[in-house]
């Protein structure tokens, strides 16, 4: 059984935000009005965390793309009272929206604030966003998050099964990786030692956020300087 993981190379990432946009479009993540976004209700599955260091004019911006880390020992699933979020055998942390009761325990438990809450029914800006039929639209009152584009895996698995073969490397590709112009995102089966993710996850540049918590995130970052 494969175990899906992601590597994000911060030395390649330019902070352009293509992954954020691609993710929003792919996963029908609603666009929140600017006023509400100011209140901290902006919704991203793939967020861009920006930090600025130094005194003007010698400032340096650091951009870190942040999806759900699909932890191997996820804290969010342990607090869910209804089993709406769980870790599946392939290491994906699933969120079943129709099972979710919107208690938001999982949001509080997530150390990476990867989960977002639907304060409203989805609203579409005419012409700007057309819903992707492969992903359901969430309703008001449920928690959602990055799924590593699991709907793409459903189709990839099916094609591989119909053709009677294994899933090839780079067949199952999430939208953020597909749209990254700098090829900073690498995705694949980390249990296969020959895959690119597996090789990169053993790089000397690798680090994981809050590794001391022991939640074992499956999103690895690469950077020559370690981030604080």
């Amino acid at each position: 059984m494969p175990k899906w993981a992601m590597v994000i190379d911060l030395d390649r990432c330019t902070g352009c935000g293509a992954c954020n946009v691609a993710c929003k479009m792919e996963n029908n993540v609603p666009i929140v009005d600017p006023d509400e976004a100011q209140n901290g209700r902006a919704m991203f599955w793939m967020d861009m965390v920006a930090t600025y260091e130094g005194e003007f004019p010698h400032t340096e911006a650091k951009h870190v793309p942040k999806p759900c880390f699909h932890c191997d020992d996820p804290p969010c699933t342990k607090v869910c009272p209804v089993g709406a979020t769980y870790r599946n055998p392939e290491g994906l942390v699933g969120q079943i929206y129709h099972r979710c009761i919107g208690c938001r325990y999982c949001m509080a438990a997530c150390p990476f604030t990867a989960k977002v809450y639907n304060w409203y029914d989805p609203k579409w800006i005419d012409g700007a966003q057309v819903a992707n039929p492969d992903v359901s639209q969430r309703m008001v009152g449920v928690v959602e998050k990055c799924s590593f584009c699991a709907h793409r895996l459903q189709k990839v698995k099916e094609t591989a099964d119909v053709e009677g073969r294994e899933i090839q490397e780079n067949e199952y590709v999430p939208a953020c990786m597909e749209n990254c112009p700098a090829d900073a995102i690498v995705f694949g089966d980390i249990d296969n030692r020959n895959s690119k993710v597996s090789r990169l996850s053993r790089s000397y540049r690798v680090f994981r956020y809050m590794d001391d918590l022991g939640v074992k995130p499956k999103v690895y970052y690469l950077a020559r300087r370690t981030s604080s």
Partner: peptide, 8 residues
């Protein structure tokens, strides 16, 4: 019968 195989 993994939830993520049917639900999306």
């Amino acid at each position: 019968n993994d939830c993520l195989s049917c639900h999306r």
